[in-house]
Design a protein around this nucleic acid. Sequence first.
DNA 1: TATACAATTTCACATCTATCGAATTTATCA
DNA 2: TGATAAATTCGATAGATGTGAAATTGTATA
Lengths: 116, 116
Amino acid sequence: MTRAIIQANISTVIEVYGAGMDIKQAAKIFKALSHPNRLEIYLSIVKGEQGSFKTEACECGVAELIATLKIGAPTVSHHLKELANAGLITTERQGKFLVARPLPETWAEVKRLLPE
Amino acid sequence: MTRAIIQANISTVIEVYGAGMDIKQAAKIFKALSHPNRLEIYLSIVKGEQGSFKTEACECGVAELIATLKIGAPTVSHHLKELANAGLITTERQGKFLVARPLPETWAEVKRLLPE
DNA sequence: TATACAATTTCACATCTATCGAATTTATCA
DNA sequence: TGATAAATTCGATAGATGTGAAATTGTATA
């Protein structure tokens, strides 16, 4: 998946959620964050080593997640797919490795669903 | 449950979460919001008829929720207990009815968990 | 007190889900 | 090409969960 396609995915997400998030979509996102291991995976991607949340995309390999958490590779793969399916991240294969990047706009939309 | 006790509960929640929310607590809150019906219940309580999120507590009867959603009273009762257990609302019995109020600080803490 | 109403509890069930082992795919490298 | 390594897919399973029916508790009112 090239960088251009990733950008297209981001635009799609922004387009889908831009008009305002309905309750089902929001619940889906909350569900993606509702498991401790999956939330930790998401936070690892968001607050990645090199990048900040706003300016630069984080790159995070699956192997590191497997080492940090006490769960196996199939489970991590499953969790990453759910995060991607909720629009919270995108994943890209770089050679042998998988790189995950956050899609901050999705979380921003969820925040807008609730006041203050 | 008197008003004073409710206030005590609110203070307890603020005290517990004030030091910073860990991942398990946050996942628990996300789980409480991860089901469409339960999220809608929470939103009904938060954006209640009479009060705004910040200034005034919302009061919301269970019967109205049962009428709005297509689920029975036992299920609503179950959902309200989960929301209260996550620290997102408090409930108080007023005569025959149950009144629910949001605890905005809990959601505010969750928002602080993620950047921006 | 008796009746009606609101909410909860209990129990049961069907569905979902997090997890892992084994097999498979994809990619790098000797 | 063969070997190794990373990730995914598949199948199975134990545990969690949303829901409702029936019974119970709490409250108000006639």
